[in-house]
Write a protein that binds this DNA or RNA. Structure first.
Lengths: 136, 136
DNA sequence: CAGCATCCCAGCTGATACTG
DNA sequence: CAGTATCAGCTGGGATGCTG
């Protein structure tokens, strides 16, 4: 695959081809998805739900620094986008379990890949920052 | 690989093990990386630089909706983190080319994977949102 | 336990104007 | 062409208090 062919393959991600706008304003897919899971907490929530369904407070404990409010807001948003399921068991006290939908499981794959990259390269980024700051 | 083994493999991504904090506050790798490329524009810039180095205004034109200011800010940030290179050719008018470093190329891989997911599943997310909004 | 409502602020971001 | 500088606004997100 040569460079121009690769460019053509990537092009659709960047902005819709003129004439192919799907909803009035032209939006590129990656932008649209980032607008939904690109906030501070969504990706962390998805990673934490990848293994098995988790209850609200357990989730809260496993995500360092998240407030109750933001966990609620984030879960609602992910549920709205069809990435997360919410299951209430009418016990007392109530138990609410959150899990990933199939769609959620599927996005968890590339997200986990990004997580692997993060774990492998965080030090290199820190180092680069130090070098840059020293040189300026 | 069973569930608990997978959980153990993912665990380091979530929060550092007690006693392993590297900089006072404990940070999980994915959080740290998202703090750097998780803003509105970084990922789009990286995708646009993946194929070949691009000059400032060409980049600006290819990223729908980005302002001159935010492109500058984003590029500086990525350069600082060692993901992007900046090459000035002292012509008149000046030409400044931006490209990905090796580190930048490596993060472009999982990012492109996320882009592919976005392209493949955006419609499903839109649909889910419609259903959710109708049901509430 | 699992939320919702309210208040409030920091900072990200866009708009605009100017420069080598 | 490729920036820098300044100003102003919006909204993401924290803090707090209350409910079924």
């Amino acid at each position: 695959m040569n460079a121009s062919a690769k460019a053509a393959a990537v092009a659709p991600l960047l902005h819709t081809t003129p004439g192919f706008e799907t909803d009035g304003r032209d939006t590129c897919p990656i932008r649209e998805v980032l607008d939904r899971v690109g906030d501070t907490w969504s990706i962390l929530v998805i990673i934490n739900l990848q293994e098995q369904p988790v209850r609200f407070n357990a989730l809260k404990r496993s995500i360092e620094g998240i407030s109750q409010r933001m966990l609620t807001v984030t879960l609602r948003s992910l549920e709205r986008d069809g990435l997360v399921t919410r299951t209430v068991r009418p016990t007392t006290p109530p138990e609410v379990e959150y899990g990933l939908t199939e769609l959620g499981q599927s996005i968890a794959v590339p997200i986990a890949a990004l997580g692997d990259w993060a774990a492998a390269n965080r030090d290199q980024m820190r180092c680069a920052r130090g070098t840059f700051d020293a040189g300026s």
